[in-house]
Nucleic acid binder design. Structure first.
Lengths: 347, 347
DNA sequence: GTCACACTTGAAAGATATTTTCGTCCGCTG
DNA sequence: CAGCGGACGAAAATATCTTTCAAGTGTGAC
């Protein structure tokens, strides 16, 4: 709509993707103002044959990607992305000029959009589109994406909500960068101490993660109080880890402690729906959650929470794998300890 | 002259595509069209000697077609066709020049082969190839039902976890009693005050619900402290509501406050995975969450949380529907109030 | 309120890829 | 063995994609 906004981060954003499109590995690269260039732990993994970026042509993940990246697109690009996501088959049949005309933009914009979506150029996007179309064709047709209405019967609410959340999960899984995830897991698994920041709805996710990590014997703490978070962040140093959870990616109360942790040498992880947001500046590893449309009856907080929780679960399982020797007994012990809190057996 | 012929080709090509992009509504429509959509009029055009010329762009039957047409092909064309049928994915990645080199032929031959196979040109063959590859790919993907193992690569963890949680959601939705849910919604929507009990992982769900209800102007409070919970429960009376969340259904710390609330005349709701457990004794309405198997690496807390959250979301949306007049403005106001907590601007 | 800056955008130039044309060469037939 | 028909590829012609650049537009600063 009238959400025109231009942003100062874009400078950072575009600077972040230098030559190759979507070089996620270097997300936090040189952005940190605090000098002290910290190499990203992820190193130069992957990077396939040709100079193409690490992002492999996403086959089915495209719709998810569009949704995730939409907020960081310009108006024209959004129009293009929308057309592409809405009718893959139709767009696959169009040349770059045709698609430009259809969306009322220019060829340059179409190419730019393709780049943003992770393809080397429009040609490759088109190929992926053809693949996607074929999949949809063979797959299922019944997509009941209807929004929830005020007068929907309760049974419909349940069905729609469940469907939406499933969709969110699929999107999130598809859009999650496993390289970044792996790096984040490594950081957490080896951390001396883990601080987790989150406020509002994200605060609960932060607590969830902290609870889980504590259960497997790691030293983790979730902070919802911005002041205390910063105060604690100062204590962090190399070998520690900090995780920031913010859907918007621009929550000041979250960014500040993460920045402090970053500056003090801790390995930092951001879980956000806006990987181009300010919070990523101070994150060694960025994990992207899906951004679903919100409606009157369905606050964004709902799907972002679902998405965040999946990411957090993945993190947790990953950490548990790495520390299985010590984690499994610790987890068992925590169950043991709780047993007596339950009423006798009710089978 | 020849130019005219070619133009007619193009006209045919674009003529076939116009509908789809225009109306983004029909997602699969487009492909169906292209699959079946034979440009009959133009189809017969030129296209080499054999009568096969006008066959529609083959969807998946490409391999068969290659075999059928092979006899009528020249040696060079056969080489091309063979390569295409043998490795659709690989060939889709090649330009006409690349494929010519690979097969030791020329561009012209490749194009001729594409024509023989029923496509307007190589470009379209390539698109079809991409689609074919995608189908093959997706065909052999869907088996991720296995449990998560200690040595699973991180990508598998993500896929399995997402799949599991999706399953949990589906189960929960299927098992949810909408009558009970409706009754619980009514109780909450009209309550003077709402207390919510949950400890441990369920405590976060309780807080989530409380947060949401508060946002739409209801008086809700989540209690994790058993003592305070009971203390507060004593204050409840008819016209109030209490919600207990416990996966096991036998958590003493949760049952006690619910009992007190029940005895004092409040309408009580239990969200539990064990509807036959003790907690249900004191619940006017029982909402059942799904109970997924747990494994070494996947604590039950994880899926129970997913399930509980869906139930809680349904409750919330239901309440919101009932109180839309007052809820919507309240929700909007809460967003408004948070706006300044975010960094300047984000697109 | 005005200015300057930065970002977005499309037009057009520049590069690739595809298609067509056309001449050569091979193999076959008489 | 000469003549013929067609396969084949090189290169021109065209379409398509990509990049560059300058103008337009909105935003924040002063």
């Amino acid at each position: 709509m009238t959400k025109d906004l231009k942003d100062s981060f874009n400078a950072a954003g575009s600077g972040r993707r230098p030559g190759a499109p979507g070089a996620a590995a270097s997300v936090s690269g040189g952005i940190g103002t605090s000098g002290a260039g910290r190499g990203t732990a992820t190193g130069g993994t992957s990077s396939g044959g040709s100079g193409v970026g690490e992002a492999p042509p996403a086959p089915a993940a495209l719709a998810a990607k569009v949704r995730t990246l939409a907020p960081s697109m310009t108006r024209s690009m959004q129009r293009v992305a929308e057309a592409v996501a809405g009718d893959p088959a139709g767009c696959a049949a169009l040349t770059v000029t045709g698609l430009a005309e259809l969306t009322g933009t220019s060829e340059a914009t179409v190419v730019r959009t393709a780049r943003l979506l992770g393809y080397p150029g429009y040609r490759d996007l088109r190929l992926a589109l053809a693949g996607l179309a074929a999949q949809q064709q063979s797959g299922r047709a019944p997509a009941v994406t209807a929004d929830i209405a005020v007068d929907d019967p309760i049974a419909d609410v349940v069905a729609k909500l469940a469907y939406d959340e499933q969709q969110t999960l699929a999107d999130t899984a598809a859009g999650l960068d496993t390289v970044q995830l792996g790096a984040a897991v490594t950081a957490l698994a080896g951390a001396r101490r883990i601080d987790i920041y989150g406020v509002g709805a994200s605060g609960l996710v932060a607590q969830d993660l902290a609870q889980k990590l504590l259960r497997i014997g790691l030293v983790a703490h979730a902070h919802s109080d911005p002041h205390l978070a910063v105060t604690n962040a100062v204590q962090l140093r190399s070998g520690d880890a900090a995780v920031a959870i913010s859907h918007s990616g621009s929550t000041g109360d979250i960014i500040e402690p993460l920045r402090v942790a970053f500056d003090h040498g801790a390995t930092t992880v951001a879980i956000t729906g806006r990987p181009d947001g300010p919070v990523s500046q101070y994150a060694d590893h960025v994990l992207t959650t899906s951004t679903a449309r919100e409606t009157d009856l369905r606050p964004a907080a709902m799907s972002s929470r679902t998405s965040q929780l999946l990411v957090v679960d993945c993190l947790f399982i990953g950490v548990m794998q790495r520390t299985y020797e010590s984690a499994a007994p610790a987890l068992a012990a925590s169950y043991e300890a709780l047993a007596h809190r339950h009423s006798p057996r009710t089978r």
